[in-house]
Design a protein around this nucleic acid. Sequence first.
DNA 1: ACCTGAACACCGTTCAAGT
DNA 2: ACCTGAACACCGTTCAAGT
Lengths: 214, 214
Amino acid sequence: MPRAALTRERILQAGIRLADTGGSGSITMRKLGRALDVEAMSLYNHVANKDDLLDGMIDLVFGEIDLSPAGADWEERMRASAVSAHDAFLRHPWACGLILDPGTPRVIPARARYMESILGRLRDARFSAELTYHGYHALDSHILGFTLWEIGHALPPGDPAELFAGFQRLFPVSEFPHLAEHVRQHMTDGSHRDVGAFEFGLGLILDGLKRMRG
Amino acid sequence: MPRAALTRERILQAGIRLADTGGSGSITMRKLGRALDVEAMSLYNHVANKDDLLDGMIDLVFGEIDLSPAGADWEERMRASAVSAHDAFLRHPWACGLILDPGTPRVIPARARYMESILGRLRDARFSAELTYHGYHALDSHILGFTLWEIGHALPPGDPAELFAGFQRLFPVSEFPHLAEHVRQHMTDGSHRDVGAFEFGLGLILDGLKRMRG
DNA sequence: ACCTGAACACCGTTCAAGT
DNA sequence: ACCTGAACACCGTTCAAGT
């Protein structure tokens, strides 16, 4: 049986699968070729280069965001689509870091549609051009920035008690009492990697914007 | 004249200088060796590996943050130290991305002191343990996340008019009216890379925390 | 004690050669 | 039209050999 023909679509899907399981460090032209039973050089027939590959993968992730959620008012709908974005970026934890990586600005169709949607809904909710400008920045930077922050602060695998002990040795309670308390909260909380923490900051932003609109 | 002796301190300083001018992609054991007139392998006598090098560099950046700013009340002081952190990360635009990079959790002395200071000041300002926990996350993720977001969204070099034209060709005004308006605001605003944009989100968070404290 | 040459296992990418 | 072998210019890191 001849293997399935290589297409851009199949390459992007395989790239996402590879990154989901191995992290962004595992995305390599050579590894991706191996996953597709093909030499790395073959990929260049369907993808301009590695950046083009990453752009395509990220475009698909943005495509998973629900931009028309149900909801009674603008605030409820804005919260719902932010949570949908948060969910998508948690499903693909490699994406936020690549999107925010300075040096390679990624202008991507699905991201443009995402921006257009959020900006339009703020304007429709009677936000001024000025407040929409700053409000979008606050929302987008929270969605991408907080999610990346959250992914990086997840408890690493391994025995929590042992982890905590090693941490205490580096930063003794006597010198870092508040830090110790904070870390303990992280341990008992399980991980803070839940919708709650994301929505806490989101709520602050939405509340603030609503009050500023007057 | 024999060249100056290699030390960990000199290596970290040279690394920061290299990254400041060339971006995080320019940090290479080989390039760093060249900058110090030394073979790359020599660095391993003073630094365990590349991650240890990056940890040391980031530690120095955290050390630049003013943790005891003047100010009448907790809110004013919290805003001042957040702005000081923002300044430090803008001086070294490669740092945020490395700090937030998942997969290599960086437990670094200067960062522990930074956390201890902020957590302690929230508790001193009569925030509950619970609110301090979430408030710290909101503040830290805004400081690191927004700053990284901001650095990545700076206008790339080149003729702005030409840039705008290329953008319009990809995303026509008819289909993306709000996006076009937003981009136009970015152009006339110069860059939003100023304290104002950072403080906008910071103000939303501080206001929200103050109200939740009751 | 510290520096280095040679080597190893990786990268992204090009290009001529095959089918 | 699409795939590949060989090659190039890079990586991080180890280790024995030099001083």
